[in-house]
Design a protein around this nucleic acid. Sequence first.
DNA 1: TTCTATTGACCACATTTGTAGTCGAGGGTA
DNA 2: TACCCTCGACTACAAATGTGGTCAATAGAA
Lengths: 122, 122
Amino acid sequence: MTLQISSAELEIMKVIWRKPGIGATEVADVLADKQDWNIRTIKTLLSRLVDKGALSIEQDGRRYLYSPLIAEKAYQKNAAGQLVDRLFGGRAAPLVAQLADARGLSEQDIEELEALLGRLKR
Amino acid sequence: MTLQISSAELEIMKVIWRKPGIGATEVADVLADKQDWNIRTIKTLLSRLVDKGALSIEQDGRRYLYSPLIAEKAYQKNAAGQLVDRLFGGRAAPLVAQLADARGLSEQDIEELEALLGRLKR
DNA sequence: TTCTATTGACCACATTTGTAGTCGAGGGTA
DNA sequence: TACCCTCGACTACAAATGTGGTCAATAGAA
């Protein structure tokens, strides 16, 4: 139910989360390395995101500046929750187990997870 | 790159992972409670999964029996990895942190995660 | 002032996905 | 034997998605 953001749209959102109030051209600049997208493609994606209510626009002369209407963390929580529900019976541990098995956990991950668990336990 | 399975298709896969070598009608029976799908819809999804190479078929008289060509765990690993890469910079800890924040972790999750971390550390 | 490059609005078009309908062949029933 | 029901094959069709084109207006360059 929560506002469906496609994979290509997400790339756009990520840029705007990092730099709210950015224009289409700057989004294209930021993405130039990663994606080989025509500026028109980016503009279409921006429009769709505005239509969907994921971005707000502010007029700046002849152009628009885009800002997120949904927070990155909210989106992350939702996406993580969906994955866990759809594939892991709603449980976090099996998800982490698969991740650990597939690619291992970094030292940093392990430390952070321990700290997190410690906090949750008291 | 890894074989794209849509959300509706995944429901079908889940049934077949639980009961490999099942026919279309039985898949429909299993799903009857959860999904309100026409048998034709289910058959379409089955065909698409065969086309995609996610399922194999075995002739059984006049009908087909379907079995998975990709393992559930492999699919889970891939999906979890994709999420983590696309939204959490490839790191597991932030994912778990968001999950914990959004919905909390069960006692069971906490125990299992601790056990998992213990195993990983030595 | 005249031409050009850029901007958003609108349009296009193939693919994927969700959700079925139609059809001919074959198995089972009366 | 005469039907009918079920199966897979093929077809349909709208919405979402990926990717980009056209066009009129306008801000700048020359």
